[in-house]
Design a protein around this nucleic acid. Structure first.
Lengths: 335, 335
DNA sequence: AATGTTTTGTTAAACGTTTACTTTTATATT
DNA sequence: AATATAAAAGTAAACGTTTAACAAAACATT
């Protein structure tokens, strides 16, 4: 910068000490009205902006939260990041966004950076992370919230969506429409949230006295292409299902697309329900009936949790489980 | 943190001074091999991580770039942000992501924060920003690159996509398929990039000796819904066009969707070409033929530009214009 | 042997805040 | 009037780096 306006400049102009200026800024000590006005005027006139680095160095905080996601290009994560940013911004914090690509090395490297930069807290939304990174952060006494993933670690908050309930609700909904032959397209088996959704599916069937047909349960890749691919298996099924629960929206949409090219209509010939409620779900034809993850709530809770910890209001460790919500649109109909 | 390892600890352990340790870390002066090894061992053993705040305070840099976008939920921007993060990360920088919602007040507030945090540079991808913010940043001697928007400001780099050429190419492509009755769905008239695309459309028609029918040119809102709405105007047209250039993909997809519900097929009854090449374009049926914006190149150039400036390698101001690319898929066919 | 030069290291002063400690001034109590 | 107490403001030492200025050793040149 050509010239930086410091607290000294303000103090000089207001005819007082840096201590008083600092106290005026932070409201940390009584300062007479008269002097306060002088200081504020000086700040305005000089257009003074506190230097966050100096503040941070002196045991304070830079008011920055690290947000670690696999890939912000994925709307699911970008929507969370957006919501987190909104919350943080409203409380005077900024976010440092980190895209790990689900790569352990990258994630570790990002965490090192975050420690170096002494962020106030970290919200991790990772589908694959070793506890090493968490420990690193905790050891640097940086509060951590793990979102969207179950974790067993005494030192971190954990906030997740009840995937099993989501799968259960989705299946129950199809049953309530009159279906009994219900297939399920699972995700990659190493992703726990996917497995839990399938578990909910099983539970709902059993509870309703419907026998589970293992042939009805397939596994996709959580992507559009995987949904399309499931179609070929689907049509080969001897006793073809009349309804399908796809464990995420992308596969649901791919599946519907695949059916379309075979002139099988949704929901007339087959009812399909998804999971996630990504933006796309509102746009496609038919609009997708799905189980919404409460992203805003998740982001809000995660941010609240981390900021409470940062500001030392609450040091307890919590485990929060959010309930997903059934969103009825046009891809399912009564049998 | 429970306890912070500082450069002093390292110096003590290695039996030398902090200056030498600093020089070893930064390679800023010769240090004998013997001593270097001692220092490096001490750093390893203590698991020392330099404190970026202290480094930044002392005239250095925090290695952080501010990235200002309207909304990272929009795939167009999230893909740019992602690419920028990739570039920055590879050079040891992090990004602070700022979502302005196209709101001038928010953007200004974010910029204040970025100045406070003394980021090394700012990449702004904004469709609406006053020069005030740019000036604020420049005055704080923070380099700025404006991407995806034309700007007249002596102090900032500017990197844009040749929208006119994109519109021209799209239209020329439709002409090359044998069409002469070609409609155009423009965007909001206050968005310059949209207007430039329409300009290219006009140019291509004139150049090919096709008379411009003003009735063929409508205006949408750049969203899916706007595309659907255009359909009603479209079918009312007396001499119905056989091909349509939508000035962005979202409208193109909405338009196709609207046609679909009227049993008008794309590309059999109407050819449609879009602009942007968002991820969705690869997924829908039919897959959308479109004009791709070279996002990766844009991000790479923007990052290179800003980092060169940050590291004082290049202080000149550049204006870069990138060419868009025609991506042929399934939404257009020969007449 | 005396001097200059290069090589290698160290000391200590910044950077802009916050905050514990100290000082000054005003008010109350004896 | 002298002292104690409270209120308001100031002084200066941190925070963890970098780096200019200085110092000492090692070597080369006269």
């Amino acid at each position: 910068m050509i010239i930086m306006i410091t607290i000294h400049d303000v103090a000089k102009m207001a005819g007082t000490s840096t201590a008083t200026v600092s106290h005026v800024i932070n409201g940390t000590r009584f300062v007479s009205d008269e002097l306060q006005i002088k200081v504020k005027n000086a700040m305005d006139e000089l257009n003074y902006k506190p230097n966050m680095m100096a503040r941070g160095l002196k045991g304070g905080s830079m008011k920055t939260i690290g947000v670690v996601v696999p890939d912000c290009t994925n709307t699911f994560f970008s929507e969370i990041a957006r919501a987190i940013d909104r919350c943080c911004f409203s409380k005077g914090y900024n976010i440092i966004l980190c895209n790990t690509d689900n790569d352990v090395k990258q994630q570790s490297s990002y965490c090192d950076m975050l420690i170096s930069k002494m962020v106030d807290g970290v919200i991790m939304i990772s589908s694959d992370n070793s506890d090493d990174d968490i420990n690193k952060l905790i050891n640097a006494s940086i509060p951590v919230v793990i979102a969207d993933r179950t974790v067993n670690h005494k030192g971190v908050d954990n906030i997740i969506v009840n995937n099993e309930k989501g799968g259960y609700d989705a299946t129950k909904y199809l049953i309530s429409l009159g279906y009994t032959k219900i297939a399920c397209i699972g995700g990659p088996s190493f992703i726990s949230s996917s497995n839990q959704r399938v578990l909910g599916y099983r539970k709902a069937l059993i509870e309703s006295g419907i026998e589970i047909n293992e042939d009805y349960i397939s596994h996709g890749d959580f992507h559009f292409a995987g949904g399309i691919k499931s179609v070929s298996d689907f049509i080969k099924l001897k006793d073809r299902p009349e309804a399908v629960f796809a464990t995420n929206d992308m596969m649901a949409l791919g599946f519907i697309d695949g059916l379309k090219s075979l002139k099988i209509e949704v929901p007339n010939d087959v009812s399909v329900i998804g999971f996630d409620d990504i933006q796309l779900a509102r746009i496609t034809t038919p609009k997708l009936t799905t189980i919404a993850q409460p992203l805003d709530e998740l982001a809000l809770k995660a941010t609240t949790l981390i900021l409470n910890k940062v500001e030392k209001k609450d040091l307890s460790i919590s485990q929060i489980i959010l309930n997903p919500i059934l969103v009825v649109r046009d891809s399912c109909k009564k049998k």
